[in-house]
């Protein structure tokens, strides 16, 4: 891999008057012990748009994503410096209720991780813990979220069966349904289709596109075609820095940075 000057960057500015910003980071650094994995990343994420984070493996895109809802808190020796602004609050600051925050910034992981409970319980588990007891409300929640995740037709007759009996693609869509059952503002997805076959992948992509109307989506992907197909904005990560951030078509067709061009044209990665 070539070494590119990290000063050589292009970060598109979004005018707050024209674009509503749902989440943004300011000079975000992530440290694992003494080594620095993310070297100060500042990015805005527009509301009801899909932003793709691309880059080679080890570029820090997943690490960055996981710090957005502070999932890195749980890894011993990890430190995150800098600001994560959400609703005018720095959610990386002290005194922020992390659990409450995660209800609004949901996450779907690389490998499908349904609970070993029934399909129905997978979706209603967290809402129930949050005090929704009404059976009718829960039933409705299960139906709407499964419909949104394009899974309803396949599982509506087996809601009480174990989620582990579903196929990988179905499990991943169940995880999406489970995440949106919390009615989050923002959905973080960490390579949600990388463990899936092409057909399941395209179903998941369709699901994401249809979710865009209600959710701000940030997705990490190593699949450039996927980023091109579904995202509105793309950020290119390289060795812990964002070298280019722009609307997706620009990144893929008219990249302004040499490193980006080399990556999207498949010269490394």
């Amino acid at each position: 891999m070539q070494n590119y000057a990290s000063e050589d960057r292009y970060i598109k500015e979004l005018d707050p008057k024209k674009h509503e910003i749902a989440l943004s980071t300011e000079d975000l650094h992530v440290f694992y012990g003494t080594s620095e994995a993310i070297h100060g990343v500042s990015l805005p994420f527009e509301r009801f748009k899909i932003t793709a984070l691309i880059g080679a493996s080890g570029s820090g895109k997943s690490t960055y994503l996981r710090s957005l809802n502070r999932m890195n808190d749980n890894i011993e020796g990890t430190r995150v410096d800098g600001k994560i602004m959400y609703r005018d609050i720095d959610i990386n600051g002290k005194g922020v209720n992390v659990y409450e925050m995660r209800k609004h910034i949901g996450m779907v992981f690389q490998r499908p991780n349904p609970f070993s409970k029934s399909i129905y319980d997978n979706i209603t588990f967290a809402p129930k813990r949050n005090g929704i007891k009404n059976k009718k409300v829960l039933d409705e929640l299960v139906e709407t979220t499964l419909k949104q995740a394009a899974l309803w037709d396949q599982v509506k007759d087996q809601l009480d069966q174990s989620a582990l009996a579903l196929s990988g693609g179905q499990q991943q869509r169940l995880c999406i349904a489970r995440a949106i059952a919390m009615k989050p503002d923002i959905l973080l997805l960490d390579e949600p289709a990388s463990a899936l076959d092409p057909i399941s992948t395209s179903t998941v992509e369709d699901t994401l596109l249809s979710l865009k109307d209600h959710y701000t989506i940030i997705i990490v992907t190593h699949n450039m075609q996927q980023a091109g197909r579904i995202s509105d904005y793309t950020a290119f990560f390289h060795l812990g820095n964002v070298l280019e951030y722009d609307i997706t078509s620009n990144v893929f067709q008219r990249p302004k940075i040499q490193a980006t061009e080399d990556y999207v044209s498949g010269r490394f990665g």
């Binding site: 749980n74 659990y99 409450e100 995660r102 949901g106 991780n113 489970r178």
Partner: peptide, 12 residues
């Protein structure tokens, strides 16, 4: 990954 699933849903 099961722990992450729970935490990502806002559970303690």
């Amino acid at each position: 990954s099961q722990r992450e699933a729970g935490l990502a849903l806002g559970l303690s």
